[in-house]
């Protein structure tokens, strides 16, 4: 395999995706995991730039081909790249959202890339992604550092055959698009002006999930949203201004509701900062090669008389119980 083919499996985790986006030089956005596609959840996160949907790959899904939105083969306004590298789909889905946005600040690296590939056909765009040193390096920096993990299966899964795939939903020119690098082109789900694509996309994703048997729960939905801390800070500033105006008119006791809102937002900012710290720590652990540590711990246990032997015995019992359950 050539060097450009070396893409690693990355975890579908909001901290990883946020780190990946920042790594490519994009400012002012982050990725949030979504646990339900109801109106309140999405309302809270607005503005949403796009959704990334992860699901178990079941082949090309011939049964549903009839009710799918039409593919647009030639639309210069839509950035669409075919996926030519097996494990790049997470990055591909993120790029599908970033490069189709009119509002996200892409930064120098990605702006140059976008300009460079703009006239290429979809397949060549895919190759351009896999040939981009920066994109590949950032992607791979978020893979687990264990040197042997570069297959697309989920290593913690009991059935090793499971493949996962990421696709993106995003609004472009007032229409909702589905961008799936394994398809031949972008799928246009029809007009959805403004934020209304968020209402349109819910049933589409739910329908996709419903195609799986009851037991399948390995779906993951993530949203590319504006930097939460910035959003909260702007709201605080706006409320403070309102409060000031109100108090000038009605005295210092006025505006209890506004004071409460400001207090809540300040709490949200603290929470968000804590979350980021946690994500940064997790990302560092993800990049760490634990093999020497594991070896040293096992060695330490072996050196303490019989400790390891006893633990291996217990481990076998545990493994057996797990296999039988």
């Amino acid at each position: 395999m050539s060097d450009t083919g070396n893409w690693c499996l990355i975890e579908s985790d909001p901290g990883v995706f946020t780190g990946l986006i920042k790594g490519i030089g994009v400012q002012g956005v982050q990725v949030e995991e979504i646990y339900s596609i109801d109106k309140e959840t999405l309302e809270d996160l607005k503005p949403v730039h796009g959704l990334i949907f992860l699901f178990k790959w079941q082949g090309r899904d011939p049964a549903s081909a009839t009710n799918q939105a039409p593919i647009e083969y030639e639309n210069p306004d839509v950035f669409f790249a075919q996926q030519v590298i097996t494990n790049a789909c997470a990055t591909q889905a993120i790029l599908s959202i970033l490069l189709n946005s009119r509002t996200i600040e892409l930064g120098e690296e990605l702006s140059n890339f976008k300009a460079f590939v703009s006239d290429f056909p979809a397949e060549i765009k895919g190759h351009a992604i896999s040939n981009s040193d920066v994109i590949r390096a950032v992607h791979n920096s978020f893979s687990r550092s264990d040197p042997f993990i570069n297959e697309m299966n989920d290593p913690s899964s009991k059935e090793k055959e499971d493949l996962f795939h990421f696709i993106a939903y995003t609004p472009i020119n007032g229409c909702l698009y589905e961008l799936d690098g394994l398809q031949e082109g972008p799928r246009n789900h029809g007009p959805a002006p403004g934020d209304s694509w968020l209402e349109k996309v819910g049933p589409i994703i739910q329908e996709r999930m419903a195609r799986y048997e009851g037991g399948e729960i390995r779906f993951n939905l993530m949203a590319v949203v504006d930097d939460r801390i910035k959003v909260y800070q702007e709201k605080v500033a706006a409320y403070e201004e309102q409060l000031k105006a109100l108090q000038e008119k009605e005295g210092p006791e006025a505006g209890a509701w506004l004071k409460g809102e400001i207090e809540n937002l300040r709490g949200d900012i603290v929470k968000e900062e804590g979350k980021r710290e946690k994500q940064a720590r997790e990302n560092k652990l993800r990049r760490h090669n634990f093999i020497p540590l594991i070896y040293e711990i096992l060695k330490g246990l072996a050196q303490e008389d019989g400790r390891l032997e006893g633990l291996v015995e217990e481990g076998r019992t545990r493994a057996k119980a797990e296999a039988e359950s």
């Binding site: 594991i294 711990i297 096992l298 330490g300 246990l301 303490e304 400790r307 390891l308 633990l311 291996v312 217990e314 481990g315 076998r316 545990r318 493994a319 057996k320 797990e322 296999a323």
Partner: peptide
């Protein structure tokens, strides 16, 4: 061949006593 994995052995409880050394 066995189903034994290292996570069956290196549980937090197994590692803790080692850290007194």
């Amino acid at each position: 061949r066995s189903n034994l994995r290292l996570d069956h052995i290196l549980t937090p409880g197994a590692v803790a006593p080692l850290l007194n050394n």
